[in-house]
Amino acid sequence: MMKTAAKLLDDYLLRFRTPEEAAALFAEDGALELPYLADLGMPVRYVGREEIAGLLTRLLELVPDWMFRDREIVIDTPDRVMAEYKVDALTAGTRRPFRQHFFGYAIAANGQITLLREALNIVETARAFFPNGLADLLPAPIIEEQNKTLVLDALDTLFNKKDFDKAKQLWSDLYIQHSRHVPAEREGLFGLVRSMPDIRFEYDMAIAKDEFVWVHSRYTTSSAPAALIAVDIFRIEDGKIAEHWDVLQDEATRDESAGGYPMFGDAFPNAR
């Protein structure tokens, strides 16, 4: 009796870790298709046992502990099967989790797979394999605008709203601080803000490029006679503020200004 589509799919999932054996389940001109790989800039169709074995070998290099589990049949006829199955392993390159819920549709003829078409979660794939996760899939202007929005929201959340719980979600727990005036790491920054309960942040310019955001800002507090005008530079990683540099000056009044123009906005502060 020739193997059904369901039996062939089960054998494929079981033998995946031995690419030549898994590829041998396909007809000579059988195909493995993963249409969503197009979003990653990869070929989506692999035809013939040699190409299929080559793809599986490459996938095992990327995820050495790749093993399918939790297979559930959704549709089952002798020559067609649709099933769901999962993978949960670490990638070799980033050491991030690769968690996937696959949907597979297989067609069989003469006891061989003629087509296996699989769908996977491209967002989770990007997070697992790419250095910047999903950001590496989106056009630069979109990412840069998102980074700028993140930074401005983070500064308002921390300095104006004093919402430290939310701020923890916006600053990396590995935050690097390059400022002369601000203590090291995320808790150093948060501790400084806690020590100045009336500190306020405002900005008049923000620019983003690649993973960096520059903000021209003003910080005021009753404990300082003059506001601080800053150019803050932030580096974003994995959707959080990961690193910070700044250049700071006391805000000049009209009498103190050598250049004759305000340092922030279009008006000088009141004389001190």
Rank of each mutant, 00 (worst) to 15 (best):
I73W: 05
D238T: 02
K3C: 01
D153G: 02
L170S: 10
E202P: 01
F16W: 14
V213S: 05
G48Q: 04
K162E: 02
T125H: 06
G30N: 04
D165S: 12
Q100Y: 08
Y12G: 00
I233E: 07
W66Q: 15
Q249W: 00
P225N: 10
Y12P: 00
S172M: 07
D70V: 04
W171L: 10
L137F: 02
I122M: 09
A83D: 07
Y175T: 04
T221H: 04
F264E: 05
P64W: 08
V123M: 04
E256F: 01
E28G: 07
T18M: 11
P183W: 12
V44R: 13
D210P: 01
R71L: 12
T18C: 10
Y203H: 15
E124S: 09
E84F: 13
E72M: 13
S223T: 12
V247N: 15
L138E: 04
S172A: 12
A31E: 15
Q249T: 12
F159D: 05
D198E: 06
P131T: 09
Y261P: 00
F129C: 02
F234P: 10
L34G: 10
R218I: 12
G41P: 11
Q177R: 09
W214C: 07
P64R: 11
M42D: 01
L189K: 08
L56I: 15
D10T: 12
F268L: 06
K168W: 00
A106E: 05
A89M: 05
M196R: 13
I107L: 14
E251K: 07
R218M: 02
N147G: 01
I113D: 00
T253D: 02
L192G: 01
L8H: 06
R272H: 09
I107R: 15
P19H: 11
D165C: 03
T221I: 00
L228M: 12
L60D: 12
T114K: 11
Y46V: 08
L155G: 01
T57K: 15
A24G: 03
E118I: 07
L116S: 01
A267V: 13
H181T: 13
N121R: 06
Q177S: 01
R49P: 01
D266V: 11
P78V: 12
A167F: 06
K7W: 00
L25A: 02
T114E: 14
R200K: 15
D246H: 08
E20C: 02
R45W: 00
A252T: 05
R69A: 14
Y175P: 07
V44E: 14
H178T: 10
V215M: 02
Y219Q: 06
D250K: 13
Y219V: 09
P225T: 03
T18F: 13
E28D: 14
K3Y: 09
L55E: 06
Y203K: 10
A227K: 04
A109M: 09
E118V: 08
L34S: 13
L189N: 03
A140S: 13
R127C: 01
M205W: 14
E20I: 08
